[in-house]
């Protein structure tokens, strides 16, 4: 009966409970970041002192800068390599084992991070023994590790975009005298650019967020932001961590918003194209 008048009270309360479960802890944490009291669980009035404390905390600032640097570099390389892999898998003439490669490129998406981290650590250690490089583990090894797993995401995103793209666009360009390289730059890349941008943002976010793989592949000198936070938490929660988390959540939400907006817009474009074509 009530279904005629919209969702029932039961459905609504389940929905509210679900969302509360997801978001109340985060909101509480954000609220406490403005707490004047040093005790993380007692409200002492509104203040932004933890934010200024954060800005003066060199360890955290350095870790944040390192994380941003690693994220930017790894996202960029992952985008280049992932796009190449996606192009090869969709646009090359059917080659033997193409199916296997398509599966292999997607496998890291479901691989437990602990295993990815461990295997990369083993790789770096044995490389060091064999060819003496990398001399020590640190920012470089973390970056390489992040490139490897973000690349898989980007390859999958680019592949999906290419698969939905009319292949005769590229053939038409070639028919009109475009060499394969020119066709890639004139036609393919402009058309998959939105996917590459959203892929870059995703890779950036994943890298910023990663704790497990970074912990495995990092050395003594280099600590990323998640690593610093995690080590501080072990000594007890302080309100400046709340402030830091609030900033991170704000940044990530913005990134995700932009990424999905770009994806949505390019999807609308393609569907409009289909209708007119």
């Amino acid at each position: 009966m009530s279904s005629h008048r919209g969702p029932s009270t039961f459905i609504l309360s389940v929905l509210c409970f679900g969302f509360a479960f997801l978001y109340v802890p985060i909101l509480v944490m954000m609220a406490y970041s403005f707490n004047d009291s040093a005790l993380a669980t007692v409200w002492g009035g509104f203040s932004t002192r933890w934010y200024s404390a954060l800005l003066n905390n060199e360890q955290i600032i350095n870790a944040a800068l390192l994380s941003l640097k690693i994220a930017a570099v790894s996202a960029t390389f992952a985008t280049i390599l992932g796009t190449l892999a996606g192009l090869a898998l969709t646009r090359m003439r059917r080659f033997r084992g193409r199916f296997l490669f398509t599966g292999l490129i997607a496998a890291p998406l479901v691989m437990p991070e602990v295993i990815t981290g461990l295997s990369l650590l083993l790789l770096f250690v044995s490389l060091q023994q064999l060819i003496g490089w990398p001399v020590s583990r640190g920012a470089t090894t973390i970056t390489i590790a992040h490139i490897t797993f973000a690349m898989a995401y980007i390859a999958v995103i680019v592949q999906a975009r290419l698969a939905s793209m009319d292949e005769s666009l590229e053939e038409a360009a070639m028919d009109l005298g475009g060499r394969p390289m020119q066709v890639t730059f004139d036609i393919t890349l402009p058309l998959i650019a939105p996917s590459m941008i959203s892929g870059w943002l995703l890779a950036f976010t994943l890298s910023l967020d990663d704790l497990v793989i970074a912990s495995f592949t990092s050395g003594a000198g280099a600590s990323t932001l998640p690593m610093v936070i995690f080590s501080k938490i072990k000594l007890g929660v302080t309100p400046d961590i709340n402030a830091l988390a609030t900033i991170i959540i704000g940044t990530l939400s913005l990134g995700i918003l932009i990424a999905s907006w770009i994806i949505l817009r390019s999807q609308r474009k393609t569907s409009a194209q289909r209708q007119s074509g």
């Binding site: 005769s168 666009l169 053939e171 038409a172 360009a173 028919d175 058309l191 474009k269």
Partner: peptide
């Protein structure tokens, strides 16, 4: 030169 069934007009 070829005219494609889908026309394949470059959308960008």
């Amino acid at each position: 030169n070829m005219m494609f069934q889908s026309y394949a007009v470059f959308p960008h």
